[in-house]
Each structure stands twice: as structure tokens, then as C-alpha cells.
Amino acid sequence: MSAAVNVEDKLFQNRYKVDHGRPHIQIKDAAICANDCAEQQCTYVCPAACYTAEGNGAVTLITDGCLECGSCRVICTEHTNVAWEYPRGGHGILFKFG
């Protein structure tokens, strides 16, 4: 895609109750992303851009904008490196319209 799309503008419209300090999704072993995963598909498949490919080969995850779809867990089949839970009750995305 040539047209740059700023997903932040989209996520900004959403309502969240962030569970500070308790991310519901975690990368199990950062070294696996950096060394064993060439494609790092989570960095472009995640619809909320929670995963970022850093210049040094690492992948960082910030779950604050997560839409709780589950895609990152489902696509990480080769390495199953995503520890995925729903947020604690009442936390996470709170859809106004759904």
C-alpha cells in the first residue's frame, strides 16, 4: 500500500479501560521473534498495530490499543510465541457501537 494510514487516528476514537501494568498479551520469548521469525507477520496483520518491528530485529508489543480479535495468537503457528488471555473483567476495549 502506498497510501500511509495512521491507525492511531482510528484507535483514538475507541474507548478503552487499560489495565495498567497487566498486559493481557505477552511475547513469551523475545529472542524467538528477533532470531527465528523472518516475516514477523504480527507487525502487519494486527489490526491495531500493537506489534512493532524495531530496527534491531526485535518485536515490541504494546497492548493498550488491542481490539481483542485474537489474530496475533492464531497466526503465530510456527513459534507459538504469543501468550494470549482476555483482559481482566471490565478492562480492555469497550465498544460503544460494536
Binding site: 482510528k10 475507541n14 491495531a48 481490539l67 480479535c69 492464531v74 465498544f95 457501537f97
Partner: peptide, 9 residues
């Protein structure tokens, strides 16, 4: 006027 962006499987 865009008021929500959602994703789902």
C-alpha cells in the same frame, strides 16, 4: 464522522 474502529475474527 468516524466514531469507532473495530476488528473481529
Amino acid at each position: 464522522e468516524m466514531k469507532e474502529y473495530a476488528a473481529h475474527l
